[in-house]
Amino acid sequence: MLEFDLAEIVEGSTKLLVPRDSLSEKTPPKEPAFFNPRARVSRDFSIIAYSAFLKNFKGPKIFLDSLAGIGARSIRVANEISSIEKVVANDVNAQALEIGKSIAKVNGVTNCEFSENEACRFLSLHSSRDGRGAIVDVDPFGSPSRYLDCAIRATFHGGLLSVTATDLTVLHGIFPEACKRKYYGTPVRTTYGNEIALRLVLGCMNLVAGRMDIMVAPLFVQHSMHYYKAYVKILVRTNTKNCMGYILHCDNCGNRKVVQEVEHICNICKSKAKLAGPLWIDNMQDKNFVDAMIPEEENLKVDKSCKMFLEKCQEEVGMPPAYFTLDEIGHRNRSAPPSLDKIIEKIQGIGLRATKTSMNPTGFKTDARIDEILSLV
Rank of each mutant, 00 (worst) to 15 (best):
V77P: 01
H223Y: 14
K312H: 08
T166I: 03
A68K: 10
A336E: 15
P361N: 12
L374W: 11
P337C: 10
R20L: 07
I70E: 00
A104H: 01
V106I: 12
L6R: 03
F34P: 01
R256H: 15
A72N: 05
E116G: 03
K342P: 00
S375V: 14
A336V: 09
E372R: 02
R199Q: 05
H264Q: 00
G71P: 00
N107H: 11
N36M: 02
I234Y: 04
K229R: 14
I9V: 15
L235T: 04
L340W: 09
C250S: 06
F141V: 12
T355H: 02
T357H: 02
R181I: 05
S224I: 15
R73Y: 10
R121M: 08
G100Y: 07
R121L: 05
V109T: 03
I174D: 13
I214P: 00
A104L: 03
I268H: 08
D137E: 14
M1L: 13
E116Y: 00
A7D: 10
P29G: 13
A154I: 05
K365G: 03
S339H: 12
I370S: 10
K229F: 01
N242W: 00
I329K: 01
P361E: 14
F156S: 10
E8V: 04
E296L: 00
M308F: 05
M293F: 13
L219I: 11
G173P: 08
V88S: 02
I103D: 08
S145R: 03
A39G: 06
R211V: 05
C253A: 13
K287M: 13
Y147C: 11
I47P: 01
N79R: 07
M308Y: 13
E311P: 03
N56V: 03
R369L: 09
L219R: 06
D65F: 05
A39Q: 13
K58E: 06
T155S: 00
K356S: 01
I247G: 02
L200S: 14
K58G: 01
A151T: 12
E263T: 15
T325V: 05
A94M: 15
G203W: 03
L168D: 09
D44Q: 01
N194H: 15
A72P: 02
K15Q: 04
A322V: 08
N252E: 12
C306M: 10
V92Y: 09
E8G: 12
R199I: 13
R121Y: 00
R146W: 03
G185V: 09
A368H: 10
L125E: 14
E372T: 10
C120W: 07
S46H: 09
P60V: 08
G71T: 03
P32D: 04
Y192G: 03
N288S: 11
S22H: 14
